[in-house]
């Protein structure tokens, strides 16, 4: 496990090898976070690459007294993913369909081809997570996958701590309702007896 603070300092001093080590160390985790948020391999790669490049170019903006490097990097990644998500929604919006009185916005979530291509991540839980809204998906991934504290999540998501907590709880409730609806009915029947 490399000493991240030392690498950051070396890169600040101009050691390009340190930048490469930092990149390689955080490459996979940044990509996976972006993939979890966006649900598309290409978009995730672009967002993650953008986030890593931004972090390395703007390394002077990182202050280790305020957050760990991974928290800072995740903040940038979440922002990039949000921008890409909004852009993708606009691209998929069909004005003709909207005027024509259709239900409106195209489904921003991945279509059938996504399931075929990304079969390795087609578990029930994964599909349920991808069915959440973006704020809830962010909350559940940062908490369950990245293991961030609520304080760190509040910094990353730019919201108060109670908001981060309630998003995680709400995301969990939605996932539970999707993953175990029959179990829920059974439990409710038990409670009513």
């Amino acid at each position: 496990m490399p000493d991240i603070d030392a690498l950051v300092q070396r890169w600040r001093d101009g050691d390009e090898r340190a930048a490469e080590i930092l990149y390689n160390h955080f490459r996979d985790s940044t990509f996976r976070l972006a993939y979890g948020l966006l649900g598309d391999l290409n978009d995730a790669e672009e967002a993650a690459q953008d986030a890593l490049a931004y972090a390395l170019v703007n390394i002077h903006r990182y202050d280790r007294r305020r957050a760990s490097f991974s928290t800072w990097l995740h903040t940038i990644t979440v922002c990039r993913c949000r921008d890409r998500y909004r852009r993708n929604r606009l691209k998929k919006f069909s004005l003709t369909a909207w005027i024509g009185g259709d239900e409106g916005l195209s489904d921003p979530h991945p279509g059938p081809e996504h399931h075929a291509i990304h079969a390795e991540t087609s578990s029930q839980v994964w599909e349920a997570v991808q069915g959440l809204s973006l704020p809830l998906r962010e909350a559940i991934l940062l908490r369950y996958w990245s293991g961030h504290t609520f304080r760190e999540m509040a910094d990353i998501l730019d919201c108060p701590v109670p908001t981060a907590q309630s998003r995680v709880r709400l995301a969990y409730q939605r996932l539970r309702a999707t993953l175990a609806p029959t179990e829920l009915v059974h439990l409710e029947e038990e409670e009513s007896r």
Partner: peptide, 23 residues
């Protein structure tokens, strides 16, 4: 949920095009 997410995410890799050389 946690274990499934960890397993799913572990199984996903970026393409070789995503490299330090590219940036």
């Amino acid at each position: 949920i946690r274990h499934s997410l960890l397993a799913d995410m572990r199984g996903v890799q970026p393409s070789p095009a995503m490299s330090f050389a590219a940036i």
